[in-house]
Design a protein around this nucleic acid. Structure first.
Length: 618
RNA sequence: GGUCCGGUAGCUCAGCUGGAUAGAGCAGCUGCCUUCUAAGCAGCAGGCCAUUGGUUCGAAUCCAAUCCGGAUCACCA
């Protein structure tokens, strides 16, 4: 239980006992209270805002604050040390023993902040790549967010099933295929020493080049732009190929399998490197026909209407949207058809309570429509559908455009980050005894940590600017900063182990125990009081479970990133000011060791939820 | 045009269930390594929180309008 949830009922109780006799005053409950951390420029740890009671109780804020503060301190001396009232704010000073007790019972728990299983099941669908080109920066944001949200939900007690919808068929796939047929001369990843997804991507680009060339040729020959776009031979060939694919023509299927196989090999390498993994894969080639049953069902229920031409529509005008096509007039499915079918299939397979779709915000409208349609169809899982919408990643020069070659390739970007990590590490000269393997691993940890942190530190909903120069900075509000803080702490803890007294210190630690006998150690009483920077750090640690809860509710990893950064900063301030190993007394030293250990645990735990590893040394 | 999202320091972002003098990082300027890792710490400077009006004891935060930017509204995916 967090300290704020502990304080609230006490305040409510105090208010009721003080003022319930006043005529016209109804009972106070916890939701009436605003309690927040005290601003650093005032004395106190947590603050109750008094203004809201002034009118009802007809007393001045100062008087109210003093009365409430008096009761709180008198009835809960173990929790509140003192209080002060400034303007309309009651600042409460929490007893040091409370904080010390908190540290004592949690410092060694690597799971601190996580919750027991709640029996709820959540599906998280993320990544969802197309198999015609390699991953780019935008995909990375998706992958990092999806993985992280899944991890946050697990920490909050949910059972999580990670799924991936692979868009492995369709016109865009045929474009790469036909270009390969025309231009590749049988080139393979092996023969060209090219990663499979990149090789296929090259032919996707080649398609577009050739297509453009053919359009120009036809236009020079006098055709209009529209006609040229339709009649370009390569486009006609592509459309034919799609028909052949749907008809199951063996050569086409074989080529499709071969090229998709290359892409999967490439994706596997990248996924492994960035840590993306899935419990279940769905392939569009398997699911694109699903959903026709849902369409029939919707027609029966009167949720959809069939027009004269045979096309089927959902009328969402009553909900403020437009009409949405769910089946083409020729009976073939559109995206919505597949999504309806897949939602149904997922539910039948897993009976989820929540189904999260990590998809870019350009599909806000589509996802809204999907949820609405499911609701109108009275699907029990409709309410659990949640679109985790994230903003586009832009470059300082503007939006990434694949046609203009301004996309940032994922593999290249990761390589670059790792190279820079290596450079910084070598310059610092702190890691002299690592072997080649260990160094390689460290560079990966730091480079990827920087990248993940950079992409996840901002609110997913918002579109963000990716500035290559800034992303390469490893100082300040960055992953490496946090990793560095962790390594620093571990360095201290290693020293303590080396001294060999850690075990006994950890086991006994009586001088810190709340139940400890004060009289037996007259000297240590002084050390029982916390210094400001020690207390700041403990208060920060105490907020971790609340932060996790918030991140979980909001499906928002940036909450964790921001918190962990502030925690690390708080530790560094403490670290510079006070020595752990050369503390003023043995008691202080033991106390600070615990404080350091807990900080390291929370950093590691929080970073884990972001998919970022923390090194022991760097 | 309809709907949705955003506009906070030079730049990138927090803060948005209303509360004290609006915070970080980067960039700029000052200091601090004979002391547990300087990828660090301390400090200075930097703001009409897009604009206008409203609600309130109190508004960056809520409401309305306006301006600017983006997304979307396809028998595309």
């Amino acid at each position: 239980m967090s300290i704020v949830t502990e304080i609230k009922p006490l305040v409510a109780k105090a208010l009721n006992s003080l003022y319930e006799d006043i005529p016209g005053v109804k009972g106070f409950n916890e939701s009436d209270l605003t309690i927040s951390p005290t601003k650093p420029e005032f004395e106190g740890d947590y603050t109750l805002v008094l203004f809201s009671f002034v009118k009802q109780l007809k007393k001045s804020p100062e008087l109210l604050g003093n009365e409430i503060g008096e009761v709180l301190v008198n009835t809960n001396p173990q929790l509140f040390k003192t209080f002060n009232v400034i303007k309309g704010f009651l600042n409460l000073v929490i007893a040091d023993d409370y904080w010390i007790g908190f540290l004592q019972s949690n410092y060694a728990d690597p799971q601190f902040g996580s919750k027991p299983a709640n029996g709820q099941k959540v599906m998280v669908e993320y990544s969802s790549p197309n198999t015609n080109k390699p991953l780019h920066l935008g995909h990375l944001r998706n992958n990092f967010l999806g993985w992280s949200v899944a991890e946050i939900l697990k920490t909050c007690g949910y059972e999580v099933i990670k799924s991936c919808m692979v868009n492995d068929r369709g016109i865009h796939i045929c474009k790469s295929m036909i270009a390969w047929q025309l231009f590749a001369n049988g080139a393979t990843p092996q023969s060209t020493h090219t990663k499979g997804d990149h090789l296929v991507g090259e032919y996707y680009v080649k398609f577009n080049d050739e297509y453009k060339r053919q359009i120009e040729e036809l236009m020079t020959a006098g055709k209009s732009k529209d006609v040229a776009e339709k009649e370009a031979p390569i486009m006609k060939g592509t459309q034919q190929m799609l028909l052949d694919w749907e008809a199951g023509k063996p050569e086409v299927i074989e080529l499709w399998k071969k090229m998709n196989g290359w892409v999967y090999e490439g994706f596997d390498t990248t996924y492994k490197r960035i840590g993306s993994d899935f419990n279940i894969m769905y392939y569009e080639s398997d699911t694109y026909l699903l959903g026709k049953k849902s369409v029939e069902e919707g027609l029966e229920k009167g949720v959809f209407v069939k027009k004269e031409d045979g096309s089927v529509w959902a009328d969402l005008t009553g909900e403020g949207l437009d009409e949405k096509l769910v089946l083409r007039k020729d009976g073939t499915s559109v995206y919505m058809t597949q999504d309806l079918g897949l939602a149904q299939q997922k539910y039948e397979q897993f009976h989820y309570d929540q189904s999260i779709y990590v998809i870019g915000d350009e599909q806000n409208y589509h996802m809204k429509a999907l949820k609405l349609i499911l609701k109108k169809m009275n699907k029990p899982y409709a309410d659990g559908v949640y679109h985790l919408s994230y903003g586009m990643v832009e470059l300082p020069s503007g939006r990434m455009k694949s046609r203009e070659g301004t996309v940032v390739d994922a593999d290249e970007l990761i390589d670059e980050m790792v190279t820079i990590a290596a450079k910084h590490t070598e310059e610092s000269g702190k890691i002299k005894d690592f072997n080649t393997e260990e160094l390689k691993e460290l560079y990966e940890i730091i480079g990827l940590g920087a990248l993940k942190f950079f992409l996840m530190r901002v609110d997913p909903k918002k579109r963000m600017v990716f500035n290559p120069e800034e992303s390469v900075d490893f100082h300040g509000f960055t992953g490496p900063f946090v990793q560095y803080t962790h390594a620093r702490i571990k360095s201290i803890l290693r020293k303590q182990v080396a001294v060999g007294s850690r075990q006994s210190a950890v086991e006994t630690g009586h001088a810190l125990s709340v139940q400890g006998n004060r009289q037996s150690a007259p000297d240590s009483y002084r050390d029982r009081s916390l210094l400001k920077l020690e207390k700041d750090l403990i208060i920060s640690l105490e907020q971790y479970p609340t932060i996790i809860e918030q991140a979980c509710m909001e499906h928002n990893p940036s909450v964790i990133a921001i918190y962990i950064f502030n925690l690390a900063k708080s530790f560094n301030t403490f670290y510079t000011e006070h020595s752990v190993m050369n503390a003023e007394s043995e008691e202080k030293k033991q106390f600070r060791l615990k404080l350091s250990e807990m900080t390291a645990n929370v950093i590691a735990s929080g970073m884990h939820m972001l998919g970022i590893k923390v090194p022991e040394r760097m």
